[in-house]
Design a protein around this nucleic acid. Structure first.
Lengths: 223, 223
DNA sequence: CATGAATGATACTACCTGGTATCATTTCAT
DNA sequence: ATGAAATGATACCAGGTAGTATCATTCATG
C-alpha cells in the first residue's frame, strides 16, 4: 500500500521560492523530515521545538519554512512518512495456501508484533492527541492501520474460509475480519498504551490462540 | 465503584499552609478542579494555561499552588475526578435475571453509549497523550475503563452463561468477557477516535448484535 | 568562470506560560 | 470585636518558542 497522500493540506502553506532545488537542499529536506518524525513520534507535537529539530538534523529553520511552511506542515509530512512503516510486517506476510487456523495464527501474531512495537505505540499516542488539530492525519492513521489490517485479514478469510465465508461474499469476510482483528488486538493494545506493560510473548500467543478458536467457532456456527 | 485513588501522588507536592481552610477556599478549590477538568479533557495538558483556568473558574493562581502544588497536581486531581464518571451507565446497568443474549445486548449497548460519548472520547485522547508524564493516570484509566467493563461483563456471563461458562469457573468467563468487550468496542471506538465519525445508532446496534451472535457461538462450541 | 538563486548560520522579535512575590481584603477562632 | 491566617487580585520574572530578517556561503547553470 502506498503511503496515504496528504499533499494538498500538507504543502499548501509551503512557500516554494522555485522548484529548482539543490541536491543539498533535497537532502536536508528529507533529513529534516526523518529526524522530525523520530522526535515528534517520541514526544508529541508540543514536546519538540523547531530549534531542536534543526540542531539534530542540520540545515536551518529557513528550510523548514521554505519546504514545509512551518511547524505544522513539517509535522504532517513527518507523520505521513512514518505511517506507512507501521504495518509493513502484516501487509508483507505471506499466507498463500495456508489452512484457515494456521494462516489466522500467523496473521494475528504479525498484527500484534506490529501494533505493540514501541514505535507503533508512540505513533499511536502522538497521533491520537493531535487528531483535533490534524483531522486528516487521524483519518490517514485509521486507513493505514485498522482498515489495512482488516483488509488483509478479510482477503485471507475469504480465500481460506471454507463453508460459511464465501457464501455471503466479501461482506461476511469483512465482518469476520473485524471481529478477529479486535479480539486479537483490543485488550493487549489498551494495556500497552495505558499501563506501559509490554505483554509477554506468551500473552500474545494466548491472545492469538483464543481469537483463532473463537473465530473458527463463529464460522462453524454461522455467526 | 469509587473513584480511583491517587492521593499520594496527586497531593504530594501540594503545599498546605495549614489544614484550616476557609469555606470559600474549599469552594474555589473544587470549582478550579471542575473547570480544569473540562478544559484539560477538551484540549489536553499543554493546551490549557493556568491563567485561563483561573479566569474561567475565579480564584487565583495562589489557590492552584496552595491546593494542588502546581499545574501537574491540578491536572492529576482534575482527571482523577473525571475518570469515575465515564462508565457510570455501564456499572449501573441492571441485568439480574436476564437471559444471556438479552443481557449481553443490553450491556453491549451501555458500553458503546458510554465509550462513544464526546466526553469519554476527549478524555481518552487527553489521557493517552499524557501517559508518559503521568503513568499513574494511565493505569487508573485502564482500571476505571476496560478493566471495569470486563469485570461487569464477566460477572454477568458467569451467572447467565449456561453450559460452558461455569465449568471452568471465573477464568473462562473473564476470557469471554474480554473477547466480547473487544468485539463490541474495538472498531467503533477506533473510528470515533481517529476519524471523528460518531457511529450511528444503527451501526452501534449492528456491532452489538454481531458480537452477541459471535459470543454465543463461541460459548456453544467451547471457544 | 561568473552570476544569481538556493541554502545555512545566526540573531532577533513578539508572545506566551509556569511559577513567585506583593499586598489588599476576607474569613474565622478566640 | 480583633487579629492572625487564608484568600484574591495583580504584577512580575525567567525561560522558552514560532516565526522573521539578515547576510554570508554554497551551488547550479550559462
Amino acid at each position: 500500500m502506498p503511503p496515504v497522500a496528504l499533499e494538498g493540506a500538507a504543502r499548501s502553506t509551503a512557500r516554494r521560492p522555485s522548484d529548482r532545488r539543490t541536491g543539498r537542499g533535497q537532502a536536508t529536506c528529507e533529513r529534516l523530515r526523518r529526524v522530525a518524525a523520530c522526535l515528534f513520534v517520541a514526544r508529541g507535537y508540543a514536546g519538540v521545538s523547531l530549534d531542536e529539530i534543526v540542531q539534530a538534523a542540520g540545515g536551518s529553520k529557513t528550510n523548514i519554512y521554505a519546504f514545509y511552511g512551518g511547524k505544522e506542515g513539517l509535522f504532517v509530512a513527518a507523520i505521513e512518512d512514518a505511517l506507512g512503516e507501521v504495518l509493513r510486517p502484516l501487509t508483507g506476510a505471506d499466507t498463500r495456501g495456508l489452512a484457515l487456523e494456521e494462516g489466522l495464527t500467523r496473521l494475528g501474531r504479525a498484527l500484534l508484533d506490529a501494533l505493540l512495537t514501541p514505535e507503533a505505540l508512540a505513533l499511536h499516542r502522538t497521533l491520537i492527541g493531535e487528531t483535533g488539530r490534524f483531522p486528516r492525519l487521524g483519518a490517514a492513521w485509521y486507513a493505514a492501520g485498522p482498515a489495512t489490517s482488516q483488509r488483509v485479514l478479510a482477503r485471507f478469510i475469504a480465500e481460506a474460509g471454507g463453508q460459511g465465508a464465501e457464501e455471503a461474499g466479501g461482506r461476511e469476510a469483512a465482518r469476520l475480519a473485524r471481529l478477529f482483528h479486535d479480539m486479537v488486538a483490543g485488550d493487549l493494545q489498551h494495556r500497552a498504551l495505558f499501563q506501559s506493560q509490554p505483554a509477554s510473548a506468551d500473552e500474545r500467543a494466548d491472545a492469538v490462540a483464543a481469537a483463532v478458536r473463537a473465530l473458527t467457532a463463529v464460522m462453524a456456527r454461522g455467526g
